[in-house]
Design a protein around this nucleic acid. Sequence first.
DNA 1: CGACATATTGAGATCCATCAACCAATGTGG
DNA 2: CCACATTGGTTGATGGATCTCAATATGTCG
Lengths: 191, 191
Amino acid sequence: MIPVISYLDKIHSFIESLDHETLSALQNISIEKSYPKGYFLLKQNEICDKSYWIKNGVARKYYLNDGKEITTELYFDNDLAVSFDSYTLQHPSRECIETVTNVTVSIIPYQKFQEAKSNYPALLTLDLMLAEYYAMWLENRLFQFYTQSATERYLDILHKSPHIIQSIPLSVIASYLGISLETLSRIRARI
Amino acid sequence: MIPVISYLDKIHSFIESLDHETLSALQNISIEKSYPKGYFLLKQNEICDKSYWIKNGVARKYYLNDGKEITTELYFDNDLAVSFDSYTLQHPSRECIETVTNVTVSIIPYQKFQEAKSNYPALLTLDLMLAEYYAMWLENRLFQFYTQSATERYLDILHKSPHIIQSIPLSVIASYLGISLETLSRIRARI
DNA sequence: CGACATATTGAGATCCATCAACCAATGTGG
DNA sequence: CCACATTGGTTGATGGATCTCAATATGTCG
């Protein structure tokens, strides 16, 4: 598995090393808000015109296919929640983003960030790093589906991200693993 | 399915609209080369320190898992071939890139492109657009694996990318579809 | 023509989905 | 505080999709 995590560290140090003006420009366009459990930060078919930096709590991104939920991403502290294609293309989103617990987020509107990028070039670099990180994260996720069985994928989460198991209902974990709740239940029983 | 293709168009017009200096800077660091069928543009464990713009021909990116080839991407005219994580992190690559036919490519070394980016800011924007495009392409590929059966994925290629069927051996197509050659053969027989 | 790569077909096994029944914990209205 | 609904999870039976191994067929190129 590619060490994508270390790239996250690099992004965080990059942010910390930003000059004062750029940093305060970022703060000026950020708003902090709190939402209850079960709140939709983004609904299906809406345009994702904000990015949500999770300060505290848990959220997830998913879409419906044949009435079945497919969870595409889970968000914890310090994660950046957006529907990537909807945000990038400013098109309606097939995915929605729902809070799993009460959450506090830092919100940056799409338009404001675009403007800030043209005034503060370092933010363009930041945007690139974030896109690169997301692409590598997706590559790893595809890699897992190619190479691992459902049981292996579950064990992977169990070992590398136990906080997921603890804070999220099994039905959501199952849909994140791409399997049915029943299969997940059987996998857990077998271990 | 998200209209990622239109974003490709946007990237191409962006390139065409670049100022003369930026364009010639790009050309100055590009080298055009030709390779025979079956040539490895990138071998496993090498660092991907070049990007290959396919001018003519077909190539593919794949890796081995349990001795089985998993094809992750197919390249045709005007596609950009890199092992994304290896290129971005400048780490050894798990994937290799092999030509499927004779190909002509335009090569840009990683280092030279990084330097060019700092001298010509528009290239930073270009780099961002390319990363965004790749991320959306990956999202769509994941989406297909989540929601479609092998038969549906094959039909999709058949209708939307018939050139793939015509120019690439079935064994490679099968590994690109994430199924065995036998299953692909049966799918084709059933239609 | 012969040889080697490419593709098809068959039989059996495996993984996982679906449908259905069931259980336990939690809430809620009366 | 109880009866009942709701949510979250387990268990069983069955079927479908796909894999694997093995045999056979079809190129295709020297």
